[in-house]
Write a protein that binds this DNA or RNA. Structure first.
Lengths: 295, 295
DNA sequence: TAAATAGTGTCTCTAAGACATTATCTG
DNA sequence: CAGATAATGTCTTAGAGACACTATTTA
């Protein structure tokens, strides 16, 4: 191809003389919402332990937001994609390498980082609970798993001349053994005859750095959505698990109880039964399953 | 709050002395896949016109990819979000202002722009076919609507020791009155015991600039997915439309035929009937509906 | 009246919800 | 045996698929 541009240059010539302009560029960070599921202590030898959905946060050691908790992440380098940056951060933070990783959303509100112009390309990672026990307080003692709850507090609907604005107000609670962080995040859906848009905003926030409450909210909503029509939740499971455990994971993600019979029908194609069983429970043993690698 | 960092600075002092580092930053562009639906000419006075899904492309006037067709877009400025940049580009390109807009994905592969390090935060916009007729060849005669088809060509599955790789090969065809662009895009899903990932890659490409074939593929898949469980397709409709027209729009998006009775049941809650009817068709008139602004 | 589209009725099939029943382990 | 969980059976309900039938307009 030897097409010439209006200066009479070929593409090769153009690229050779090309100089990166002086216009301002943003920094781009990859921030990750790393989920896992852990067991709580069982009440008695007979009862099963309960499951908790957890997210990894890191206490900030420097300004801005010093002392606040932030998602693991860091700036994307020129030689890598945002996904590679996320993978690198994940390995640095947890030592884990081979996980489910999905890009969520790119946040670019002005002022979201008081230092300079920073966009955040956010990712969600799912780590199975076995892998993660090993590498918890890796290097920084300030990396901690927080239990997550995310609940609809209230719902408002305001009518416009043509259309409406619907606001869903969610409470995000993150609790570690020592601290409890709470944020309230609004999801505002504006619907008009031709347009429609959804905006997240932070109503209140105590303890989380930057706009990370928004990012976590976004991740939970994605996770809840996908759980219903994909095998995504299986990435939170160890290699062998019981169907009751899997159901508990679904329940803790969706924050609602499911019926056993219907649940088992629904996940039947996502798992494969093994001939192994749980042992030494104070009750009937349960068959162990693994993730199906078919389809 | 007067927490001090390790240099003994308050947050205010830290921000005052903060200097943007010298590490390299990417340019970030907002690129948009703008969809609309138009009628083809009817064969006879009796037949209904057919619908076509169309995408707006702009012929590049300079290097790189001179003469190739690209998605409308441009660099994000320091005073705006990626979404605002997309809205601005949309207005500049089509004159349209109030549309459905949704962020898709941020592409950051190295070398995706031969000039320099450029990430693309991509958006999908849906414009109703009435609005768009007006402002077609706005300023640039090189902005043209291309008819889109996106079809699965073949499917491969390769087994690994533990897991598998499944590749879906899609053919993307874009045709205007003068040109036909064809690209083949692979969606590769790698599934292993603990991880899973999906990667798009361009297998062949004639006529499209950059990695825009990937972005268009991504947009069509999002659109197809959302059509089934949301009212997203209604943003492609004019204020008044018949249910047959709406069905045609669903069919052209999904590239498959739907059953009338089932379709009408499914969209019943998304639309509101009016007391108006089509006129002067060579057959029974059809009731006109509008989009429901409830729920 | 023929050609075409508009619109509805209804049977079937599948999946999910609800709930009851049986099975099996451990202390 | 009591207490707990495991696993399955089945009735009901909701929605989609399939297809047939009736209705209404214009040249």
């Amino acid at each position: 191809m030897d097409l010439l541009d209006r200066d009479g240059l070929t593409e090769r010539e153009f690229l050779e003389q090309y100089r990166v302009g002086d216009f301002e560029r943003p920094s781009v960070a990859a921030d990750m919402v790393i989920f896992t599921v852990t067991n709580t202590e069982a009440d008695s030898y007979r009862k099963l332990p309960e499951k908790e959905l957890r997210v990894l946060l890191i206490r900030r050691g420097g300004h801005p937001y010093i002392g606040k908790w932030a998602l693991p992440g860091g700036f994307v380098r020129p030689s890598e994609t945002t996904g590679q940056a996320a993978t690198r951060e994940l390995r640095e933070e947890t030592g884990v390498d081979d996980v489910y990783l999905e890009q969520l959303y790119t946040f670019s509100d002005m002022g979201r980082d008081p230092r300079t112009w920073v966009m955040s390309c956010s990712y969600m990672a799912l780590i199975d609970s076995d892998q993660v026990q090993l590498k918890a307080g890796d290097d920084a003692a300030d990396a901690t798993w927080f239990k997550v709850t995310y609940r609809l507090l209230r719902e408002r609907k305001e009518l416009l001349e043509n259309g409406y604005v619907k606001t869903y107000e969610y409470e995000l609670k993150l609790s570690s053994e020592e601290e409890e962080l709470t944020a309230v995040v609004d999801r505002t859906e504006t619907v008009k005859p031709t347009s429609a848009s959804t905006v997240y905003s932070i109503v209140s926030n105590n303890g989380l750095a930057f706009d990370h409450a928004k990012i976590i909210a976004c991740a939970i909503e994605r996770l809840r959505g996908k759980v219903n029509y994909s095998d995504i939740a299986l990435h939170l499971m160890p290699p062998l698990f019981t169907l009751t455990e899997l159901q508990q994971v679904y329940e803790v993600i969706l924050d609602k109880e499911l019926l056993k019979a219907a649940f088992r029908r629904k996940v039947a194609d996502l798992v494969v039964e093994t001939d192994r069983y749980t042992e030494n429970a104070g009750h009937r043993p349960s068959r162990l399953y693994r993730r199906s690698l078919e389809d």
